[in-house]
Amino acid sequence: MGNPRSESNKGDQVKFQEELKDNIRKALPELDVVIGWCGSFDPLHATPHFMRREEDIDKLEISPLSVHNLATYLPGLRGKKVGIVVKGCDSRSVVELLQENLINREDITIFGFPCTGVVDQSKIKKALGGHTGNIEFCDMSESVIVIKSEDKAYTLPMAEMLADKCSSCRYPDAVISDYFAGEKIGNKGEEDADYAAVETFENLSVPERFGYWLKEFDRCIRCYACRNACPLCVCRDHCAAESRDPHWLSQENNVRDKLMFQVIHAYHLAGRCTECGECQRACPVDIPVLMFKQKMNKEIRDTFQYEAGVDPEATPPLLSFKMKEENITEKVW
């Protein structure tokens, strides 16, 4: 595991960020809005940043805090000329949206940059003893995050604070872009995706697995942040979760419907999910909801040798078939 990173230092980060800003400055006059990131309520958080005027560009900040997948906003802005800053993983969502004709290529301007990974806030929280409510200072380099919280200074190894998807990332550079600021790191799509965590979980006994999900989903509040943060949950206001006819789910607060919804989400993403992890990141009660989607992707890979979000022209496997399926062995009775 692990992504051999370019030994660029902070200076390079600043350099490509300036280049990126120049790119946006050039393109903005033709665009309604460019979406990037900027600082948020404390030094440890960033927030999506909608740039409409030139002066908005100054606030743009690219850092390991740029966690949000901004592709989520694209279908809602259809019809507008939109610029979007993408990490490698985010760009794969853009590819999916293009593939599904949910956005028009000519309306979208994509700004790429070499992504060295984003943090997992829960990991930082754990490293800080379960509390990130009083962050006074935060600075990051390639190798460490320095945080001051409640008069205590922490120096955390960046590699350990990165989101899981980043430590096994195979697409650090945008797979599709109109502008690319900085030096590409190099994508490695031909390497196998890492599903070790899924496999470990599958080795548990049936009651252990079933019980695990019941326990985890018990605290679900059905806010559907997982769904709304998902760039590929494109039904938006017409989701099966709230439909009365068909009546997939009840409104009762019960663990069955919460679990069922996650299966619905995973299945509706079969062959579409790019594992950007927004569902899990958005969950306000930290339920590990990404694993269902990883499992689905693993099955799609094993059965159809297909990976979503790489080729805008590809046909997703569940929208096609072969008379003879090489990797499906039917049961003999």
């Binding site: 049936v206 009651p207 689905m296 499906i328």
Partner: peptide, 20 residues
């Protein structure tokens, strides 16, 4: 033919939920 693909995937997906 479409059913075969979908059902095969679901068949293999079940273990993660905790169903054989």
């Amino acid at each position: 033919f479409y059913a075969r693909r979908r059902l095969e995937i679901m068949h293999n997906f079940l273990p993660i939920i905790g169903y054989e």
